[in-house]
Nucleic acid binder design. Structure first.
Lengths: 244, 244
DNA sequence: AGTCTACTCTGTACGACATACACGATAGCT
DNA sequence: AGCTATCGTGTATGTCGTACAGAGTAGACT
């Protein structure tokens, strides 16, 4: 029986019910909600212990009664921001996983600070695991083995993440990205200016044909579906193969 | 003609050749190499302006003559850490993209701090763009249009990234991940302890069948190939379809 | 009831960090 | 020779995460 890391315990409400001392004025949920609200409105950079504490009306150090460190708080935020997964209904595995992945991506786009958080941790909270469970469940009739199902779900989440990242950085969010360019158009202009056709033959040919120049329609929904179908086609091929 | 953001200009050596004043004692390349060495040996957290400055024997503020901000330095690091892409040889597009993606992932695993860096920026440096160019080039005989080629390359890079992230966080690297667990085995134990089979039917069934318990062979190369083949199969299907 | 003590929140303090600013030194330019 | 753009330095500021010690609170124990 492994010992639960403190954050995990807190995410699953495994805290021992308090015995002595003054009643806590807060709980983890309100702190987390306050932090999320700050992240939503002012960005992740504004989520400092001081700001969060001020938001809930408490001295900064009080937060450490509920959270071991700022990193823990961020982890809990990443978990709490996740809504329940979509209902299966009577969708085929493919249709379900398509909306599952799309909603996953939409979540990341609606809360861009999730992109800045380290997704490097495998899911441990109840909500993220529920998503995982539903994806596995959708694949349960297909004859794939456990490892294949898990890998398929992983690949889909990963795609949602990278697509959201790309869409957001190029996108209408209006956020500057690190290099200072403002969007797909400017990105294309920069590339066109800098590329030597001799060393970058394929890329500069693509630039000349104007891919990024007419930036309407760039990174539209079709581009998301493209990669999604790539993966779903792959899964479908795998299912067909393992049915034999 | 778009104005080049300063970092981009620096990455492409577009700096005006210096005219007046004392000869610079440094250049961007040595600063970047020093920063990369620190990141390689002590992790990204140790890359502070003071540390980098100390490494090259200069006062911290001197770095700002070469770099506009720490963020810029990180961007340049992410670019400079990239080796040249593999040679095409006479590989099929599929074989080439397979090793292309694998090397991409191996790079991320060998320099884990790249995972911590914001990959949210589309590639702008010469080295990353060279990788992109080679992938596009590999697809040039396949009849895909520009957008499809670009999206395919994007999906593959994304997969390399998410797979490297997952492998690294579960992996033998021995790094703790944010929640404090130590690896796949412990992860499995935590899940087993916490999951209610009623609300997580598929997941807890998978746990009981022992997927994560025998952690040898977990996240081995086969798991990487699995997702890779998913994508490549998808691309292949697309090529076949668009050939008609 | 009175005492103990675990637990709450607060205030202060420290060390790290990114970076703004002003200064003296340097070396090409006129 | 003198001007001036540029270079590296030293100092300073504001922010941050968090360690620590203390004062108040309220259930547990006698």
């Amino acid at each position: 029986m492994a010992e639960l890391p403190p954050v995990v315990a807190r995410m699953w409400d495994r805290e021992p019910t308090t015995r002595r001392g003054p009643r806590p004025r807060l709980d983890l949920a309100t702190i987390t909600m306050a932090a999320i609200e700050i992240a939503d409105t002012e960005g992740l950079a504004a989520v400092s212990m001081s700001n969060v504490a001020a938001q809930v009306g408490v001295a900064p150090m009080a937060l450490y009664r509920y959270v071991g460190s700022k990193d823990e708080l961020l982890t809990v935020m990443a978990e709490s921001a996740v809504p329940p997964p979509p209902e299966r209904g009577n969708l085929s595995w493919r249709a379900y996983l398509a909306t599952w992945t799309r909603l996953n991506r939409d979540l990341l786009l609606s809360r861009p600070w999730l992109l800045d958080l380290r997704q490097s941790t495998p899911p441990m909270g109840p909500r993220r695991l529920l998503w995982l469970d539903r994806a596995l469940d959708a694949l349960s009739g297909t004859g794939l083995d456990d490892g294949e199902k898990f890998n398929a779900a992983t690949a889909l989440t990963g795609y949602a993440l990278t697509n959201a990242t790309l869409t957001h950085s190029l996108g209408a969010g209006g956020e500057k990205f690190a290099a200072g360019a403002k969007g797909a158009t400017e990105y294309g202009e920069i590339l066109a200016e800098v590329l030597d056709p001799a060393t970058y033959p394929a890329l500069s040919a693509m630039m000349n044909s104007g891919l990024l120049r007419d930036s309407t329609g760039w990174m539209e929904d079709a581009d998301f579906r493209f990669g999604l179908d790539l993966l779903l086609d792959g899964i479908e091929a795998l299912i067909a193969r393992s049915a034999r």
